[in-house]
Design a protein around this nucleic acid. Sequence first.
DNA 1: TGGTAGATAGAACGATCGGTCTACTTGAGA
DNA 2: TCTCAAGTAGACCGATCGTTCTATCTACCA
Lengths: 192, 192
Amino acid sequence: MSEARSRLLGTAGELFYSDGIHAVGIDRVVAEAKVTRATLYRHFPSKDDLIVAYLTQADGAIRERVETARTESAGPEDVIRAVSRFIADDIQRDGFRGCAFLNAAAEYPDPAFPVHQAVLRHRQWFLDTMTELFTDLGKIDAEPAARHFVMLRDGAMAAGCLTDPKPVCDTFLRGVEGLLTYRSREPASASS
Amino acid sequence: MSEARSRLLGTAGELFYSDGIHAVGIDRVVAEAKVTRATLYRHFPSKDDLIVAYLTQADGAIRERVETARTESAGPEDVIRAVSRFIADDIQRDGFRGCAFLNAAAEYPDPAFPVHQAVLRHRQWFLDTMTELFTDLGKIDAEPAARHFVMLRDGAMAAGCLTDPKPVCDTFLRGVEGLLTYRSREPASASS
DNA sequence: TGGTAGATAGAACGATCGGTCTACTTGAGA
DNA sequence: TCTCAAGTAGACCGATCGTTCTATCTACCA
């Protein structure tokens, strides 16, 4: 990857993430990346392509971290804890602004739009990965457990940038522990 | 409230909610509300005021529904179930596009901005209300339980417009039932 | 009868949007 | 040595952004 391209992708990522996608114009990306407009359009045919590249990059970084957790952990339960921990660390880190994918989906609600589809692909991968982990853990209802985990994660990511992140992380990690502790028990059935 | 103003607020709400706030220009609101630009600016000094009015309206509607649930239900547990049910109903209704407040916060991340502050006010009220309900229920750790509830809600609202809403609602309602069932039990402690 | 508030209609403002264009420079490979 | 891709610099495009303006009409109330 060329020097200019990576600088472009880096600053675009920072700006889109921290200020929102619609709120950041091409001019600002170009100026802060110290690159000319022509260079941007040489690498990315349109702003939409730049946005998708931004999300693809974020997706890759997360997959990498999950992969690292999988290879470095003893068993599936440890992997789930490691993933939970880096989610909590993310939430508490400076400049945390929520989930890049949920934020992008909020700005691009049209399912036919490439940006929205990039969000769906990432989320499907994450749900599948968590389902695998809960299956490895021997859970009977692995998929509901994975959905529960993802729901807690989404809630924590959404709330973590709106109030004090500390109690949000505590609630999240407690919820995950509950999910792991009561894993052999069949939860009470929902309505009807 | 004048006829033109309520039409304005109604269509602005629909458009902002379904397409995103930045994506909807004043021209479109004016056109679809069948109102002139001058009329809009007579009622709302700026677009930002219109956005805040939109969120205030949504906030009022939710408070009303929670109040109804409180008066019509037998006890705090029933109220929590009623609130959960209308959240689930919302998620499954046609045109559901997530939480208006979380979506707005994604577009307006600056905490100093009035739109962002309107989101925070609504969320604080909701957390306080849920804490009250869990307190009434006799829970020792009412606030953590309320935080857990809100986290599930946020996750469900975020995911409900990205995939099939049915399993999302099931997971949410199961989580709430778990929260109510294991209410007397001290959850496993989190990390450290 | 006169005044005023609220609405219509539509032109116009400067700023910014995403995107295209020409002209020139640089550096590495065939 | 020639070529060509990648970069800089910056003017320029039409469209849209949020906002303001003048002018006219209508309905109600003092």
